[in-house]
Amino acid sequence: MTGATALAPALAPAPAPSALAELSQETLALTKRLFLQLQRRPSTLVAGILQPLIWLVLFGALFAKAPAGLLPGGVSYGRFLGAGVIVFTAFSAALNAGLPVMFDREFGFLNRLLVAPLRSRFSIVLASVLYITSLSLVQSLAIMGAAWALGYGWPGGAGLLVVLGTLLLLVAAVTALSLGLAFALPGHIELIAVIFVANLPLLFASTALAPISFMPSWLGWLAALNPLTFAIEPIRAAYLGQFSLTRVVLEAPYGNLTAGQCLLVLTLLSVGLFLSIRPLLDRKLS
């Protein structure tokens, strides 16, 4: 048995470290936990790469012999598809952001966190954002590598920055949405159901698999309003080495959008979503 030191309550609190130091200490600890989980249960990481890889291989092959010149710009279908599958990879990963939070709510681990004198309870949200952002970028990079190996191209130095920047904006928006759902829905069954239902239709109703010019007008409208499209088109332009903020990348039924406008929409969307889930988080974490 240890003497009095282990047993006696602290008589005087230690000198208080700065708020920022405390915030980063708690956020890093929470993020580390998520990465330890991933390291010991890597199936999420593997599945998140495997699924889009299968898409890339199968879908890419599906239209391999399509007539030349069918697609705008005369690119091959594989090259066209690459941008779509990369965005889909990041999107699917970010859509799962709420799951660990939901499990913590359900199993009471969140209460353990909330009893602690956290400097800010948003460190819980911040840790999820950091974790899911790195996870989805790693998965997207793996898919970009696979696309390169399949001969579907590589964006090059500046293009790579455009791709990663665009993915970051999309991941931020989708993470906010998923975290909001994780606090609004009653349990993980419901959350998984929403993720399951949202996933594929959002992919099909975007320009990931086909350009708007192939679609009936109702679907064209949907695709032109789908946030995935706003990420896909700038990335597609980067892959073709044609990216510039002022270049038109999306010919939507309501008018032409430049890459810069697409990125602006994504920025507004993520800011808007984070602002709109804030009251919910405030309530649930207060």
């Binding site: 200490q25 708690e26 890093l28 600890a29 936990r33 249960r41 966190l113 004198p117």
Partner: peptide, 16 residues
Amino acid sequence: ILTGRELLELQANLYH
């Protein structure tokens, strides 16, 4: 999935 020590370390960090 964490060890007891990792859990205590997490907790200690939450208490700064």
